[in-house]
Design a protein around this nucleic acid. Structure first.
Lengths: 297, 297
DNA sequence: TCAGGTGTTTTGTCTAGGACAAAGTGTGTT
DNA sequence: AACACACTTTGTCCTAGACAAAACACCTGA
């Protein structure tokens, strides 16, 4: 008896897993999974265990795996896949290249929720590298390390938020320090409605500021038409968009195309972030920026 | 002929208006509006004009008006409502109390997208008031003024984001300056998944820092279980939540209750923001904070 | 006048299975 | 290796109906 497992409606599962209702229903129809129970009204109710599993599935989908394969795996096969892809914390940290000491220190501080230590690590790395390399060689690896740790289940969502928030604040302070020295606004930074991650935008803004280019951050979840209007009103030369790996992949190409069509063609569009890494062909006038090294400055 | 009006799919309208597909379809069935065209596939396609109108409707809905009334209005009635609700910029700024000069200057800077002027106004107001009164007598009125200007249609969403982003950065820098002087973390600040606005959190954090209390910002869209876990892991005394007027009102009471149930009862919960203003009864152990004056510090 | 209960209306979310286009994959030809 | 073509996979959108929860209106009693 004790604690009965919590149940979730299809709407809640859509919200928490990022998989649309339609898709959840059609998977059930086609692959027989997920197989929710029903409430008295006949509506689907998903036990927490299924929601958690869907969230795991989501990670693999984000990495480019196809639903048809993933959903036809047996439990054993799936577990094999899971341990192959990263291995839990108990294992020696898989075969991926070892973390630099500073990045490891950062990860530890996040895991221990130690604000002081985290800040100290940041400023140490900053001093050591200088801002530009600080971002390229420390912040970027940290973001990846934190993301991987999350995917492995080594850190919780709230720990990731803690890291993201502090890092964003740190970068924004550095950007603010350089504000006066920069030239007129050239770049507009933002993200589309289903994208809530903005650390990438702050990183980009900081990199640009290093090179004397100033930018305007509009933050997350800008409706597309607003982004397009803003680009024209601010009279920018470039619009920069960020897509995390959590961005609904199905919409990605469409959304980028739609934005390209609504923004005047003399304004460049940059797209970046983990979400666009797997994207091959892009509309003309759209530049992919997956690496801060290759920022076309 | 010239430029044919752009058309939007139901998904795009959902994204840009914040009104769900289901709701759009059922409004069409019940009220005969919106009345989209169809493409060759038989799918709804909405002309841009209808999308714009839906965005305006959204503003009134957020203010608590009911769809049944709003959607049955004739064009003339709707326009009357629009001008009554605030009067456009051409009219003398309605009968609401006049804005303080600094707030007015802030609003103008936002409308003109003038970053320099906006920053100058902020630091002027900050100098003049001191941080605590800066927030209470300048930032808070600005937030309200910007919100009202948006509801009137005097400023665009992207202008509001521009304001919010800059203001948030400004406050976070001030908070960072005081970080060393503060006592151990006491307050955890965040918002639930359907809430994306965090300026209120930064304002609160700054107020708390003024009084030597330190806080941890986790940012927007924290799943409830994560918030609860974080509260315990960080060992805080208080959890602060922010709800904007855009928060889905129907879930509000439930969501707060659910959070209250999942967080240990010796941890206080504060809820704040425009969204909770209309809320009367609260679960025990939940404090409503609508005014920074009355922050129970 | 205000708190509380009851009945009615309004409202949005959920259901079902089918249709179809666009992205992705594979094969054959130059 | 590059291109065209066919096949497979995939997610979004369609219809119309059901129903619970919120909001409102009305009534009662202190």
């Amino acid at each position: 008896m004790s604690a009965q497992e919590e149940m979730f409606s299809i709407g809640a599962v859509e919200r928490d897993s990022g998989i649309s209702r339609d898709t959840l229903r059609i998977w059930e129809r086609r692959y027989g999974y997920p197989q929710p129970l029903r409430n008295t009204k006949g509506e689907r109710i998903y036990p927490e265990s299924q929601l958690r599993h869907l969230q795991k599935l989501r990670r693999f989908l984000d990495q480019g795996m196809r639903p048809g394969k993933l959903l036809r795996l047996t439990d054993a096969e799936f577990m094999a896949l899971e341990s192959a892809s990263g291995g839990s914390s108990t294992e020696s940290s898989s075969i991926s290249r070892p973390l630099s000491p500073l990045v490891a220190a950062c990860l530890t501080a996040v895991q221990q929720l130690d604000e002081q230590a985290l800040l100290k690590t940041l400023s140490l790395a900053h001093q050591q590298y200088g801002l530009s390399d600080f971002i390229k060689q420390f912040v970027a690896p940290c973001v990846i390390a934190v993301g991987e740790a999350w995917a492995r289940g080594d850190i919780e969502v709230y720990q990731e938020h803690f890291f993201t928030q502090l890092m964003t604040e740190y970068l924004n302070i550095e950007i603010a320090k350089m504000r006066n020295r920069s030239s007129r606004p050239l770049v507009l930074l933002g993200s589309l409605p289903s994208e809530l991650h903005t650390l990438g935008l702050s990183m980009t803004a900081a990199m640009l500021a290093c090179h004397g280019l100033s930018s305007i951050q509009l933050g997350a979840a800008m409706p597309m038409d607003q982004l397009s209007k803003a680009a024209q009103e601010f009279n920018v030369d470039i619009v920069g968009l960020s897509f995390s790996s959590a961005y609904p992949y199905g919409n990605l190409r469409n959304d980028i195309q739609e934005l390209r069509d609504s923004v005047p063609s003399d304004i460049d569009i940059w797209v970046g972030g983990e979400g666009v890494r797997k994207l091959r062909k892009l509309p003309t006038g759209v530049t992919k920026v997956t690496d801060f090294e290759q920022l076309p400055i």
